Amino acid sequence: MDRRTFMRLAAGSLGAAALSACMPQRMAPDRRARTLSSNASMDAKSFHASRQYQQTRFGNIAYVEQGSGEAALFLHGFPLNGFQWRGALPRLAGARRCIAPDFLGLGYTQVADGQSVAPAEQADMLAAFMDGLGITRADIVANDSGGAVAQLLATRHPQRVRSMLLTNCDTEHECPPAAMSPVIAMSRKGAYVDTWLRPWLQDKALARSDKGLGGMTFSYPDHPSDEAIDIYLSPLVANARRTEAYALALEENSLAGIGAKLAVSQVPVRIIWGMADPIFSPAGAEYLDRVFPRSHGVHRIANGKLFFPEEFPDVIAAEARQLWAAS
């Protein structure tokens, strides 16, 4: 599909998103999904206490794990880390061995000297990470740049992927999204951390504002929480050069030409897409639904922005269980 066709599809999908936002039957489950008891998610203390490390040639990969049985990997977005999945993991621990690793260059993973943090290397890292944990195959749940890595994992190491639950993420025609341009430009000058991340870490209200991480990527104005901001941004501010190297590694379209490989994939895929996301267009969901021959369709969340998986863990859990049962 050429880019002109893609943009026509994007325009049509945006119209569909506007229509769906007016439909109360779609909003009702989203409101229920947000209801979250205080003991259903990991807090900062338990998250830090649960952290483990798996040594690989790529570095020491930080991760948290809950549950047992067949494995499921939860791949976070940028600039987040495994804490993004603190609501989904306990909800799914009865069904899978749920593991949320931190990517190279983000979170608490310790990157080997000279190691690339490009998406293809992240996919290879996950294969080595799985080897270290004795995992042959895993179900993948992914968001944002983690979705790009999931697609690369499924094409570079297809035997390692049992199923994929993809949320708002890069696609071949939106990789990187236009919204990454200022981040890449600032990172090239070594200014991204000091211009955006450090002020957000110091001023949590700013971080949640329409000029911060919250307003751009979260569905609700009270997100992310103070502790989430600390957990996400503290390691990035402490390792500014590493953080900016991650951003610069996203400049190249890591998914260029991947469509033909996805089109022959036998991995069952389900897509959940936040339709209010200003970063990834709704056309991305339509593309993924069409390109994967074993797609199980798209669940559209009318008011969802990029990082809605953190805010709607019940949706993630319900969709994951349904996909895993059908795979």
Rank of each mutant, 00 (worst) to 15 (best):
R208K: 08
L197G: 06
F307T: 06
L250C: 13
A302C: 02
P293W: 07
I184W: 09
T171P: 07
A100I: 03
A28S: 05
A185C: 00
G146L: 10
R188D: 11
A245Q: 15
R8C: 04
L201C: 03
D139V: 05
L14V: 11
G304I: 06
G15Q: 07
E311H: 13
D289L: 04
R198V: 10
P293G: 01
A205E: 14
V267K: 07
P199I: 03
F308M: 12
G274D: 07
R4H: 10
E70H: 03
L250S: 09
K189C: 05
R31C: 04
H157D: 05
E121V: 15
A326E: 15
I316P: 00
Q159A: 14
I135P: 01
D139F: 08
G77K: 01
R241V: 12
S20P: 00
A317F: 02
M7T: 14
A100W: 05
Q266F: 01
T167R: 04
I229W: 12
H157F: 13
R51Q: 06
D203N: 15
Q25E: 12
Y232Q: 04
A207M: 07
S181I: 10
G87K: 03
S145E: 14
H76R: 07
L206N: 07
F78Y: 06
D277T: 06
K305Y: 08
E252L: 08
I272D: 01
R208T: 00
S254Q: 09
C169D: 09
T109A: 13
L133Y: 13
G132C: 00
I271Y: 05
T136Y: 03
C22M: 14
V117I: 14
T5P: 00
T243R: 07
A142F: 01
R8M: 12
S20C: 01
I140M: 03
G274F: 08
A283R: 07
A260Y: 06
G212N: 02
I99F: 11
A207W: 08
I231R: 05
G147N: 01
D314R: 14
Y192A: 14
A112I: 01
P293D: 03
I184P: 08
